[in-house]
């Protein structure tokens, strides 16, 4: 603990952490949503999906993009995770607090930490699986999803939840929007993305079954 204290003595460390959390968060949300849009191209047919995947590959976007995303992902975990209660004592306080004080936003945060931790685990697995089965095609994806549809369903829900509320909280924190309508806006976005995602999942399932 002492070491950490000394290390964070840089008076601006916490400012940078906070900015890193913000920008990596935004980047990840951006990535997640583009990723979902790409995935959703399956709705327009396997050909389009395959072409897209191949062109990303051809122009080396995947080879540059994936490591960057992994890096951003890790940075996000480090900066946002600094707030995670590490000690059992603290975790107990939070649970007691959330139970005693009825604040919806507190529960949102509790779920945020849980979903964050879960995404870390699941997304790593996903990435491992995808990378070992390179390249991405409609057929391999469909096969994967058919076998592990429940895995992807969980990851999808967690990811969307975490991203939706994460972005809501950032906007609130930085005061870019007044609070109440923002909650509404972020929920709307979440619903749209979820619908897209579920639809894609469904199409993959159809493909896999075919």
């Amino acid at each position: 603990m002492l070491v950490q204290k000394i290390l964070t003595r840089n008076p601006k460390a916490e400012l940078y952490y906070d900015l890193v959390e913000l920008f990596t968060g935004i980047a990840l949300v951006g990535f997640l949503w583009t990723h979902m849009v790409f995935v959703a191209t399956i709705l327009l047919g396997s050909d389009l999906f395959n072409t897209l995947s191949k062109s990303l590959d051809d122009y080396y976007l995947s080879y540059v993009g994936i490591p960057i995303i992994v890096l951003i992902f890790l940075m996000h975990i480090l900066s946002a995770g600094r707030r995670l209660p590490t000690r059992y004592q603290e975790q107990k306080i939070i649970w007691r607090h959330a139970k005693m004080l009825k604040g919806t936003d507190t529960w949102v945060w509790v779920f945020q930490t849980i979903t964050g931790a879960a995404i870390f685990a699941l997304a790593s697995i996903h990435m491992f699986v995808v990378l070992t089965g390179w390249p991405i095609t409609a057929t391999t994806s469909a096969g994967r999803i058919e076998a592990f549809w429940w895995f992807y369903l969980v990851l999808l829900l967690l990811g969307e939840y975490h991203a939706g509320f994460g972005i809501y909280r950032q906007f609130v924190k930085w005061g870019w929007f007044p609070r109440k309508p923002l909650g509404y806006v972020s929920k709307v976005i979440t619903v749209i993305i979820l619908t897209l995602g579920l639809a894609a999942l469904w199409v993959f399932l159809q493909l896999g079954g075919a």
């Binding site: 400012l15 906070d18 604040g103 936003d105 945060w109 609130v172 924190k173």
Partner: peptide
């Protein structure tokens, strides 16, 4: 920067 924006 400690504030997490939960707005309780």
């Amino acid at each position: 920067f400690g504030c997490m924006g939960l707005m309780a």
